[in-house]
Design a binder for these strands. Structure first.
Lengths: 195, 195, 195, 195
DNA sequence: AATGAATGAGGATTCATTCAT
DNA sequence: TATGAATGAATCCTCATTCAT
């Protein structure tokens, strides 16, 4: 007997909509992706999308909720840890996992910042980034130390897609990026307080 | 007192359109900014925009042509220099100048990558970034050296806007970002070839 | 009494759009007929038209496909017949039926040749006319014999509308036109080969 | 000294506008030809067109007035002649001259009937055609005799452009068309009164 | 004799969304 | 669990026309 409906079992269609939508959002941007396009790709009607989601934005919200959970977990974890360099570096390692675990979503966010900012997910994304950077940098450290911390973050964001210009095994590239990021927070720590 | 030009101020209109358009593009994104909105802000008709520009996209193209020139000049300059560390660092300094000389444009590009990619300016932007990164990194250096070079670039891009969360004088922040970027290429150089 | 279909009269809409569109196209021309006009006449929104047809041009294409079928059938039939005078005359009789069976369409085509030529239906219309005239005239007959054949065709086209200046029963007029056309091909046949 | 301004000498530009306009009207139709297009082809501004003509329609009117004069003269001449077969045939000969003397104009009229009908020139064109056909056909002759007369007219109209599918010297084709037309009125005459 | 700048009206088309079935 | 039919609002864009210079 097939898997019993646990919850009424979030239908397969729902997931397929999310998949296709995310793919198209990431490819052409949120605004340029129409519901017609999504529906056509799935061979269903636009109206079908509305059976599963309240609105276009809601599709995106649901995707983000499902895929960005690891980042929230990482933040929750980090908040319970001592603010040591080791913790910060473990944060980066976990963040790398989270990003590479949902490349299309984070690519979408990276490439549609203007749009995302005006959508309801904008708020939660912003607060996650803020939380992460608050935990990485010491508030009373020098400006360049702070910059190094933020750069560690951006290096991972940008690195995810922009490194396609460099040859090499994806996992090695990811490792290289992480290494640079780890190094940056280490240097930030070393450079000490402002002055 | 300088007599104003014959026609009162007739047609700085073109410039005013560019200004308002860029402001709105940067604020709400390219797709969400309608020509109606631009026209209303300027208190002219939509048709007036079409007198000055062939197309919505053409407005953006013209802005980009006008404001991104310094980057092209920088690339031209760099191509005539020896590939030393000093040259690379001077490139970063000039790039910093170019970026901070047209913040709204580069903010727009940064935050609308998905859109920009599908627009005609996408090609020229991509080729500029490629050119810059080709000149910063040594092709046979280690992966992490290459990552460091690209990160130097991204640090400046992202830094331009994302540093708003950090207190401090803008010029000082810019200097701090540049410093980190300079440091990254220095480290890249130091770490030597792969292996 | 025939039970009307489930949905009251839902979507004979498509047919109604075609009808009104053709009427307006024939009355004011294709370009001067706006979709707003069509929609208003039907008391639906412009968007409703786009539910049923991809494009303004597509409305016309669909009309032409539906109504010009008899001409295609006639051509197919004629191609399987011997090239005798009797065949040619039967062609004209059937062509007369086809034309009078869809007067508004052929009136539209006749009166909007410049427009039609630049539309996708232009090609198919042109090829139909060519096919017909190729089958009516002998390639090696005298110039005036060929002119007579083409004139037989044009007489029917023009006659359909231009004869409104002449009093008399429509069916009688149609018969008179057909008679003249039949006579023209007979004369063409009689006049023999060039020389 | 150059030719003295006779009338202020209807400038050369005026004529050039008419030429280009007629060419484009005939090529793409009246509605699809924009003043911008005309102006661009002449390398002047749209506003310049308005110096020479009150409106778009006025350009067409002026062309028609200039080029269709021969038809009016022919009608005037015919009205002073006896209604014999010889007169009718001379009418056709002169009409052929008039048509072939201004091919683009008559091509335009032929291919844009729907448009022309709604323009001010429509009235004068219609009345000319009516006048001609009234003079060709005897009001109490048989229907088919009348059809033959109108067909003589249409043969010339349609023949002007549609004969491009037939090989042969243009002048010979024109002669062949005229011959058929002459023949048609002769037959009409011969077939006598209705009954 | 012509231009530069602008307008107002209107064009076709697309979109997210709704609702009865 | 979906569809078919439709809407209202908005989009970009084009056009004929005007007028001060």
């Amino acid at each position: 007997m097939a898997t019993p409906p646990h919850h009424p079992r979030r239908s397969d269609t729902r997931r397929r909509i999310q998949d296709v939508a995310l793919e198209l959002f990431a490819e052409h941007g949120y605004e340029k992706t129409s519901l017609r396009e999504i529906a056509e790709r799935l061979d269903v009607t636009k109206a079908a999308l509305y059976y599963h989601f309240k609105t276009k934005e809601d599709i995106l919200v649901s995707i983000s909720e499902d895929l960005a959970r690891p980042v929230d977990e990482l933040i929750a974890w980090a908040e319970s840890q001592p603010r040591t360099l080791a913790t910060k570096q473990e944060m980066l390692r976990r963040y790398s996992d989270a990003l590479w675990g949902a490349v299309p979503l984070f690519r979408f966010i990276q490439e549609n910042q203007a749009t995302v900012r005006e959508l309801s997910i904008g708020e939660s994304i912003k607060s996650r980034i803020t939380a992460l950077s608050e935990m990485l940098k010491e508030p009373d450290s020098s400006l360049s130390a702070q910059v190094r911390c933020m750069t560690a973050l951006f290096a991972m964001h940008a690195g995810m897609f922009a490194m396609q210009g460099i040859e090499g095994d994806p996992e090695e590239k990811r490792a290289a990026i992480l290494e640079v990021a780890l190094d940056l927070v280490a240097q930030a720590e070393a450079s000490g307080v402002a002055g």
